[in-house]
């Protein structure tokens, strides 16, 4: 499947405009003492949208992503995921997390479990699915990411790209309402990146709600509905991807793009 085949219908007005908002981030700020990591960040992601968050390292994009499922705390502002406020003391964070898939830069597969056990653990322990049901689901997902023959392997026996696809399958096994990707291809060799991006592209094409922190500008350009550009803990741009790449509105984004696209 080529990337352009799943490109969203209209870049200026995405088809998903009328969809309900799945992730609503409003005025998030976070600081460690005097160091401001996030400064009044607001953005939202509608159901079925794929949004890429990019920016130079240290811009706070990964931190913002981790705030969405409460892996990072924030001092002010609010994040609402599918009507549930993440920062609220009364929120059952564990339950909310079980509904949001997350993919890490370094995969974070459980090294002591087989590939299939990695995918069934949370299904059985959190969703209370039977072992058989969880395995069936796991096998189906492994086949979907092209790794149906690796179920019995241990993570260490797989390449980085394969591990990351298992990690995506592990997240999908929970039937998430949204997926968070934290630089999913940054730790991969170039020839493995495509396999992972293909899986993500297919996911976006299937209408998964996605928030993707990445430097993959090809993915941002051709697959994402919108691009959010961050620098210094602030969101400087939030535009349909075609608009962002054609005419970024800030000088900072123009410099960033010229540097990253030249590579």
């Amino acid at each position: 499947m080529t990337i352009s085949a799943v490109r969203k219908a209209s870049p200026i007005a995405p088809a998903s405009v009328e969809q309900p908002v799945t992730i609503e981030i409003t005025g998030i700020s976070k600081s460690y003492g005097a160091l401001e990591v996030l400064n009044d960040c607001s953005m939202s992601i509608r159901k079925g949208e794929a949004v890429v968050v990019c920016g130079p390292s240290g811009s706070g994009k990964s931190t913002l992503l981790k705030c969405v499922n409460g892996l990072e705390t924030f001092q002010s502002g609010s994040i609402v995921v599918d009507g549930v406020s993440v920062g609220d003391r009364n929120t059952d964070l564990t339950r909310l997390r079980s509904r949001i898939g997350m993919v890490f830069q370094h995969f974070e597969l459980y090294p002591h479990l087989s590939v299939l056990e990695n995918i069934t653990l949370a299904q059985v322990k959190v969703l209370r699915r039977s072992k058989a049901e969880a395995s069936e689901k796991g096998m189906a997902l492994l086949r979907r990411v092209g790794l149906g023959d690796k179920a019995g392997c241990h993570p260490a026996q797989l390449s980085g790209g394969q591990q990351q696809r298992v990690a995506i399958a592990r997240a999908l096994a929970m039937d998430p309402i949204a997926m968070l990707f934290d630089e999913p291809t940054s730790a991969l060799d170039p020839e493995m990146i495509k396999d992972v991006l293909d899986v993500m592209t297919e996911l976006a094409g299937d209408g998964m709600t996605m928030m993707v922190v990445t430097h993959e500008m090809g993915f941002a350009h051709h697959v994402a509905d919108r691009v959010v550009f961050m620098d210094g803990g602030r969101i400087l741009e939030d535009a349909p991807s075609s608009v962002f790449f054609a005419q970024p509105s800030t000088e900072r984004a123009r410099i960033f793009l010229s540097k990253i696209l030249r590579q």
Binding site: L71, T94, R95, R99, F104, K125, V126, R170
Partner: peptide, 23 residues
């Protein structure tokens, strides 16, 4: 055990005790 393992376990919806017990 790398800290991110705990993050991954928690992100998957395991509670803190389950994350320690199983991961």
């Amino acid at each position: 055990v790398p800290k991110q393992q705990l993050a991954a376990a928690l992100a998957s919806g395991l509670g803190p005790l389950q994350a320690y017990r199983f991961v």
